[in-house]
């Protein structure tokens, strides 16, 4: 769902970043403030949205429940109080990282989420690595001379792959490699083999996008003045590519990192559901389907923190690596 505007990162409104020495502290403080606002906003939105969706007491009680049992639950979970009291109660507890107990399993919801989070991180990490491993060489190769016939054909293939929804890839992989050939498990996370299909699915979802951006950046960099200079100075085409064009093109994808992560997590939801992978995405879909409010709240909270943390660190990293970014922010 992410759009293709990654490279366009406009000048962020943060101004006054002069030298990374002291501005770093300010930037980080500002970021923490933003995170707080984000968390508050998302939690509030979700709280009211979810309350309109259904009565948690009824959901907990099930269809065989007696009305006494439902009332009992209402009192037990404080659902008999006015909505706004519940809201402030919720905020107060959320601030203390207490999201209450899952309606379905009765376990602390944050614990549930934190138990699933590593699985999502591990899977995503593996997919990102494979993604880089595929996309960087492929993108560099395609971008070096995009008009050549074979590369043009490969480009078209990448283009079509980009248009293939992740779940379609996942389904086909399961049907052929797990069901038909029996090479890999179709679901779950037990053992090394079970990592193969989900990782491939997620990579097939990520790699075409990065490849195309990179190819186009490399192509662009190959036309720049300094590359021409290098060429004129006698560097070979491959030297130009590896030493000059590729590093520049890679830095050019810095702005891509942030939205790529949110894109990745969106992909992870579907991938995890297809493979019954015990990650955050599966938990979220399950809890949304059953309206398990506390778990939905806790998972969205954790996702927001996680995304924010990764994005901020990537941004900081690139600030150090690429002086041009600093200039842009002015």
């Amino acid at each position: 769902m992410t759009l293709h505007s990654e490279k366009l990162s406009p000048p962020p409104a943060t101004s006054g970043v002069r030298w990374w020495g002291n501005s770093f502290v300010r930037v980080i403080l500002g970021r923490v403030g933003q995170l707080a606002v984000l968390l508050w906003g998302v939690s509030t939105l979700l709280f009211f949205l979810l309350r309109f969706a259904g009565d948690p007491a009824l959901i907990m009680a099930g269809d065989n429940a007696t009305s006494e049992f439902v009332d009992e639950i209402r009192v037990q979970y404080g659902l008999d109080r006015p909505l706004f009291v519940q809201y402030f109660f919720f905020l107060w507890h959320a601030a203390k990282l207490d999201f209450g107990y899952s309606l379905a399993s009765g376990l602390p919801s944050l614990d549930l989420v934190l138990a699933q989070l590593p699985w999502t991180i591990k899977l995503s990490g593996l997919a990102i690595m494979l993604n880089l491993l595929v996309a960087i060489p492929l993108g560099a190769w395609l971008g070096q001379a995009p008009e050549r016939r074979t590369r043009n054909a490969v480009s078209s293939l990448v283009f079509i792959l980009q248009g293939t929804p992740g779940f379609v890839t996942g389904l086909l992989l399961i049907q052929f490699f797990a069901v038909k050939l029996g090479l890999f498990p179709s679901i779950g996370s037990e053992g090394t083999l079970s990592w193969v299909l989900p990782t491939l699915t997620l990579t097939a979802f990520l790699a075409p996008r990065l490849t195309r951006v990179l190819a186009s950046n490399v192509a662009e960099a190959m036309q720049t003045d300094f590359v021409r200079t290098a060429r004129a100075a006698g560097a070979s085409e491959s030297q130009v590519l590896v030493r000059h064009a590729l590093p520049n093109a890679l830095l050019g994808t810095a702005a891509l990192a942030g939205s790529q992560l949110s894109y990745l997590l969106s992909g992870a939801i579907i991938t995890e559901t297809i493979f019954a992978w015990p990650g955050l995405g599966l938990l979220l879909i399950d809890s949304v389907r059953t309206l398990d409010f506390p778990v939905v709240q806790a998972s969205v909270f954790v996702v927001a923190c996680f995304v924010f943390f990764v994005n901020t660190s990537v941004e900081m990293l690139f600030r150090i690596l690429d002086p041009r970014l600093k200039q842009r922010t002015k």
Partner: peptide, 13 residues
């Protein structure tokens, strides 16, 4: 997912 259950059975899980 029922389809996933069948697939898990078919892939020996």
């Amino acid at each position: 997912d029922p389809t996933a259950r069948i697939q898990a059975l078919q892939s020996g899980q």
